[in-house]
Amino acid sequence: MSSVTITREIDARGSYCPGPLMELIRGLKTAAEGEVIAVISSDPGSKTDIPLWVEKSGNELLTVEPLADGAARFIVRKHLRK
């Protein structure tokens, strides 16, 4: 992960509506090809929702880091659909 620069981090802990996945989509929407965004979620559902969407939308999940408070940090690279 040392070569990855995260250009934007969204703290979506405690976000139930619109929720962490919507926050990630919002962040990626304005990102450029190759840009890396992080979203922090305390919602256990994110562990399935986020990887599912990232795959379906053609983006790339680089890593999921567990945090001390039980939340997780999802690091995603933007890819434009060809």
């Binding site: 139930y16 509506c17 619109p18 929720g19 996945l21 919507m22 989509i25 929702d49 969407w53």
Partner: peptide
Amino acid sequence: FPINRPFPIQ
């Protein structure tokens, strides 16, 4: 809808 269910709150 943008996510994998019809409303954000499960």
